[in-house]
Simulated scan of single mutants.
Amino acid sequence: MQPFTVLESLGCALPAANVDTDQLIPARFMKEPRSVGYGQFLLYDVRHDEQGAPDPEFILHRAGANDAEVLVSRRNFGAGSSREAAVYALVDYGFRCVIAPSFGDIFASNSVNNGLLPAVVEEDDAERLLTALGDHPAEINVDLVEQRIRVAEVDVPFTVSPVWRTKLLNGWDDIDMTRQHEETITRFAKDYARKFSWASPQPPETNIISKG
């Protein structure tokens, strides 16, 4: 994965609470292979009418939204089912960070595993960021090193799990995290095999029957 340190990009405001995974990608689109690009399905029913016509007033249809890499929303973002496709839709659209006061647990975990930062801010700070961004994509700075977010004059802190922060800063997945302890794991395995040799499977003895 691409390391995440400091992100200078455009941010979009999505002033809605409880944006669940079915809103992020409606279930009917999940039959499509990932190769088609799930970004086109992101928030599809929210930003289109019943006939499938795009709402020109929706933030993702504003000029510059295609270049936005940060989405700011309200509490309980990513609630609902555990579908990882919701994260795929955000990542395929181009987002690298979602900012909200709280996230669905599984959604947040899936986000980190796909290089998407779930940045947790206080509710008051989320409202300040939403106001600063307004109705059009605007410049935003997300600093994972200092754990701060800046939009114009607004400067707020955010939190993220220390383990997740390490993974994102280095672009590591779970296997990479485990490899950081390779020497300790190897040493433990050798000591264990020596102390409990009886527990290790042994090759069967070969019985040779001679014919006289």
Rank of each mutant, 00 (worst) to 15 (best):
A27I: 13
A27Y: 06
R28C: 08
R28S: 10
R28W: 08
R28I: 13
F29I: 08
M30W: 06
K31E: 12
E32F: 12
E32V: 11
E32T: 10
P33G: 11
P33V: 12
P33R: 10
R34G: 07
R34D: 12
R34S: 11
R34Y: 05
S35C: 09
S35L: 06
S35N: 06
S35K: 12
S35M: 08
S35I: 09
V36G: 01
V36I: 14
V36W: 04
G37S: 09
G37Q: 09
Y38I: 03
Y38E: 02
Y38A: 04
Y38G: 02
Y38P: 01
Y38V: 05
G39H: 06
G39C: 05
G39M: 07
G39V: 05
Q40R: 15
Q40G: 11
Q40C: 07
Q40D: 13
F41W: 14
L42E: 04
L43D: 00
Y44F: 11
D45N: 14
D45R: 12
D45Y: 05
V46L: 11
V46R: 01
V46N: 00
R47I: 04
R47W: 02
H48I: 05
H48M: 07
H48G: 04
H48V: 07
D49C: 10
D49F: 07
D49L: 10
D49I: 14
E50V: 07
E50N: 08
E50R: 13
Q51I: 03
Q51V: 03
G52D: 02
G52A: 03
A53S: 12
A53M: 05
A53C: 06
A53R: 13
A53H: 13
P54A: 08
P54I: 09
P54C: 10
D55I: 13
D55A: 05
D55H: 12
P56V: 12
F58Y: 07
F58T: 00
I59L: 04
L60P: 05
L60D: 11
H61T: 07
H61N: 15
H61A: 07
H61C: 05
H61D: 11
R62D: 08
R62V: 13
A63W: 05
G64F: 10
A65R: 03
N66Q: 15
N66F: 07
D67F: 05
D67S: 13
D67C: 06
D67E: 15
D67T: 12
A68L: 07
A68H: 03
A68M: 10
A68S: 12
E69R: 15
E69S: 14
V70Y: 03
V70P: 01
L71S: 06
L71Y: 01
L71R: 05
L71A: 04
V72D: 11
S73C: 08
S73H: 01
S73W: 00
S73F: 01
S73E: 02
R75C: 00
R75L: 00
N76I: 00
N76E: 00
N76Y: 00
F77R: 00
G78T: 08
A79Q: 02
A79K: 02
A79F: 00
A79D: 00
G80T: 02
